[in-house]
């Protein structure tokens, strides 16, 4: 395959960026999108040019490091992570635009790499449970209804890649935050911090400069892990409940 890439290049956080055009040849349809970028970078290095910086780690769709907006879509045309996107999803001769996540809370560090530490601070605000350390507790000590376990797991699937923020026209982190809140709030292990968790995580989300939710549904469409839009609905419910309880205290 022969492709034309238009890639966002930006020297550092303070520099003005621009789209640069590159031709890549000899691309196999079985290559992943990142392997295609590796091919481009190898050539750039040989030519003595600066390679394109992009985030990647596990390359098997579970770490949440890769983060590219391809042709205007977070993680590209398939509902998966960029690393699991293969070149067979494109046609020979295609022009492909590659951009970083765009959000005020995710500043660009270099080229296609953005700083997602805002997500870490949201997790720190309440994405944990209070549990005594020591050996693992007996599995049957705390029974969890099957439906709750499934619900928790569905939300625990969130890998924190930030595609929801990148896809949202408001740069909102509602889907990420709601996945993290719901995952723990539905379980008995998460019950002691049920109210403070949702209040603190939403407050941190707002403090990081993410936008608000207008329920466009772009986040759930982009999510490689299929976190449903109703996750946001459930977090809203938890937040309103916690606010009422806090007022009564």
């Amino acid at each position: 395959m022969k492709l034309t890439l238009r890639v966002w290049r930006q020297k550092n956080a303070g520099a003005e960026g621009h789209m640069s055009t590159y031709e890549v040849d000899g691309i196999s349809p079985d290559m992943s999108f990142l392997e295609m970028l590796d091919t481009l970078n190898e050539r750039l290095i040989l030519q003595g040019e600066e390679p394109v910086a992009f985030d990647h780690d596990c390359r098997e769709g579970i770490c949440g490091a890769c983060s590219l907006v391809i042709n205007g879509e977070a993680h590209g045309p398939e509902r998966t992570t960029t690393c699991q996107l293969h070149m067979r999803s494109f046609e020979d001769g295609d022009v492909i635009d590659v951009e970083p996540w765009r959000a005020a809370a995710f500043p660009v560090i270099k080229d296609l790499v953005v700083d997602r530490s805002a997500f870490d601070r949201i997790i720190q605000a309440g994405g944990y449970i209070t549990a005594p350390t020591g050996s693992a507790p007996e599995a049957h000590a705390t029974p969890v209804p099957k439906a709750d376990a499934d619900y928790a797991f569905e939300h625990a699937e969130c890998i924190g890649c930030g595609a929801c923020v990148a896809a949202c026209p408001n740069g909102a982190a509602m889907l990420f935050t709601s996945a993290k809140v719901n995952h723990l709030n539905v379980l008995p292990q998460g019950a002691p911090e049920r109210e403070t968790r949702v209040l603190d995580m939403v407050a941190q989300m707002d403090a990081e400069g993410f936008g608000g939710c207008t329920l466009t549904g772009e986040c759930a469409t982009a999510c490689p892990k299929g976190i449903p839009l109703t996750s946001i609905t459930h977090m809203n419910k938890e937040w309103l409940r916690a606010t009422r309880k806090a007022a009564r205290r």
Binding site: W8, V69, G72, D97, R102, P169, N170, G171, G211
Partner: peptide, 8 residues
């Protein structure tokens, strides 16, 4: 929260 739009 979204000061820059996508080129594409």
């Amino acid at each position: 929260a979204r000061p820059r739009t996508y080129v594409h």
